[in-house]
């Protein structure tokens, strides 16, 4: 007999009873549909305790390592606390370094607060002290770094990005919540070919993922396509070329829509270029970050080009529109 805790209440789960059946029997209505582990409607997260292996079958590995599971398939073998989200404490940090990387991107390096753990590629929610305005920014650093790195693009009329560019100075304190996000590298299959595609500051999480992948000893080919409208919009070219020289399995392809591409780069539509260069993506693990329409188009094109649905990870950046 096991006990399932949900929102502070305890529910006793019968022998051979699934978490879904137990909760339903007690009046807690978890949305569900197929009740056979296929539709994933009843996916929920174990905040304490471990879900059974059967209940994680068919889930992406990034969800598995965060203890998500299918309530309909889980006959618990130990006590569990379940819920949809963890509550993040507010982390306090200070800006230590501010560097302009190109015409519209600034790099911010912040102290990494004690007790803050994340996976390269995840994001944080940064809160402006004066009015609690909150926006999500991807981490470009890796957990081994002593600092947290953000690469922020100045969005026209963007409230927080313009504040970060113009008013947030070295030595200033700020708070954030997190981490969040399912677009990261889970070790295993070290020989698998990887494709990383980012537009604009979509490079930020990919840069973290890339360094993480290399640090974890990935041996398979790694192709990074970084796209911008034109060459001045690219950044971190020197760092990426240095990584390319130091790691023979890594290939950096800077891409531009207009004008000439830098050496070794490509000119064209980023939603088409990776397939044009690599051909079939059968067997690839794919990471896509940046502008939502491009990320969504690439997700479909990569899948049609042969990548398995389970192997495509993406993080579309949504910009918050300014109210009229």
């Amino acid at each position: 007999m096991t006990v399932i805790r949900f929102e502070g209440q305890d529910f006793v789960c019968g022998e051979e009873e699934s978490v879904l059946a137990c909760m339903t029997r007690h009046g807690v209505m978890i949305p569900s549909s197929c009740q056979a582990g296929a539709c994933q409607t009843c996916m929920i997260r174990a905040l304490e305790g471990r879900p059974t292996p059967e209940s994680q079958q068919g889930l992406k590995d990034t969800l598995r390592v965060q203890n998500y599971f299918l309530a309909c398939m889980c006959k618990p073998t130990e006590n569990m606390t379940i819920g949809l989200s963890t509550v993040s404490p507010a982390y306090h940090t200070v800006l230590r370094e501010k560097t302009v990387l190109n015409e519209s991107v600034v790099r911010l390096r912040l102290d990494r607060p004690a007790g803050f753990h994340y996976r390269a590629g995840q994001f944080i929610n940064l809160v402006r002290p004066t009015d609690q305005l909150t926006r999500s920014y991807s981490l470009a650093s890796v957990p081994e770094d002593g600092h947290l790195e953000l690469q922020v693009k100045r969005v026209p009329d963007g409230k927080l990005s313009n504040w970060l560019f113009d008013a947030f100075e070295v030595g200033d304190a700020v708070e954030f919540f997190g981490p969040a996000g399912d677009c990261f590298y889970v070790s295993g299959a070290a020989e698998q070919p990887l494709l990383l595609v980012g537009t604009g500051t979509g490079l930020a999480p990919l840069y973290g993922i890339l360094r993480d992948v290399l640090a974890q000893g990935h041996t398979g080919p790694i192709h990074l396509f970084h796209a911008s409208l034109a060459a001045p919009g690219l950044y971190l070219e020197d760092e990426l070329r240095a990584l390319e020289r130091a790691n023979e399995q890594f290939h950096y392809v800077p891409c531009v829509l207009h004008g000439d591409a830098p050496a070794g780069g490509r000119q064209g539509n980023i939603a088409e270029l990776p397939m044009a260069v690599l051909g079939s993506l059968d067997g690839y693990r794919v990471f896509l970050c940046g502008d939502p329409p491009i990320v969504n188009a690439l997700r479909q094109k990569c899948f049609i080009a042969g990548a398995s649905m389970q192997d495509i990870y993406s993080d579309p950046f949504v910009f918050t529109p300014v109210p009229d």
């Binding site: 549909s33 296929a38 539709c39 409607t41 068919g58």
Partner: peptide, 8 residues
Amino acid sequence: AKQKGFLT
């Protein structure tokens, strides 16, 4: 996921 349900 829906198609998986259908094929199942």
